[in-house]
Computed example of a mutant assay.
Amino acid sequence: MKKILLALNLIFAVSLTVKAQNISDHAIGVRIGGGNGTGGEISYQKHLNNNNRLEVDLGLASEVNDFKVTGLYQWLWSIEEQFNWYAGVGGGIASASKLGIYGAGVVGFEYNFNAPIVASLDYRPELGFSGALGGLTSNIGIAVRYQF
């Protein structure tokens, strides 16, 4: 048990020393996800400070009245010059026959191209609390965003 705690503390300490990434002020694009989500989402990211940002995603299902809004606070770290990883927490509201709320986390990787385009792959576990959302679901997504 002591070895596990020592290893976790070491990983945490190393993650604090990783160089922060330059984050664009705004990014907008599309996130295509799987799992119990709506599939496609319009995605917006807003720079908050040196290595933090806010992401808001709006997904519309095949039914006109079904939607899903997710908000995530993210921390971003640089792996190499244009390659980053990020993690975050948040939640959202979904309408799938009933209005429901859920908590969400996210972990992923992104690549900043030389053009103002960023592509990412992430994993988003979601825990539904009410309405038609119940229990834990997994959502894996690929996103492409324009940075400005």
Rank of each mutant, 00 (worst) to 15 (best):
M1E: 14
K2T: 12
K2D: 15
K3E: 15
K3F: 11
I4F: 11
A7P: 02
A7F: 12
A7S: 15
L8F: 12
I11K: 01
I11Q: 02
L16T: 11
K19D: 09
A20I: 02
D25K: 14
A27S: 15
G33M: 10
G33K: 09
G33N: 14
G34M: 06
G35I: 03
G35W: 01
N36D: 15
G39I: 04
G39M: 04
G40Y: 08
E41I: 07
S43K: 06
Y44G: 01
K46T: 07
N49Q: 11
N52Y: 11
R53H: 13
L54W: 09
L54D: 05
E55Y: 00
E55S: 11
V56K: 09
D57E: 14
D57T: 05
G59C: 07
G59E: 08
A61V: 00
A61F: 10
S62V: 07
S62D: 15
E63K: 12
V64H: 09
N65H: 11
N65C: 04
D66C: 01
F67N: 00
F67E: 03
K68F: 04
K68T: 06
K68H: 10
T70N: 10
T70V: 13
T70K: 11
G71L: 08
G71K: 03
L72K: 07
L76N: 14
W77T: 10
W77V: 06
W77E: 12
E81Y: 12
Q82S: 12
F83G: 02
N84F: 02
Y86V: 04
G91I: 05
G91S: 05
G92Q: 02
I93L: 15
K98I: 00
K98E: 13
L99I: 10
G100Q: 00
G100S: 03
G103P: 01
A104E: 06
V106L: 09
V107S: 09
G108K: 05
E110G: 10
E110R: 07
N114C: 01
P116Y: 05
P116K: 02
P116S: 01
I117N: 06
V118H: 06
A119G: 09
S120M: 01
D122K: 03
R124A: 12
R124G: 02
L127T: 02
G128T: 05
F129P: 02
S130D: 08
L133A: 08
G134I: 06
G135P: 05
G135Y: 08
G135C: 08
T137F: 10
T137M: 10
S138T: 14
G141V: 01
I142C: 00
I142R: 00
R145V: 11
Y146I: 08
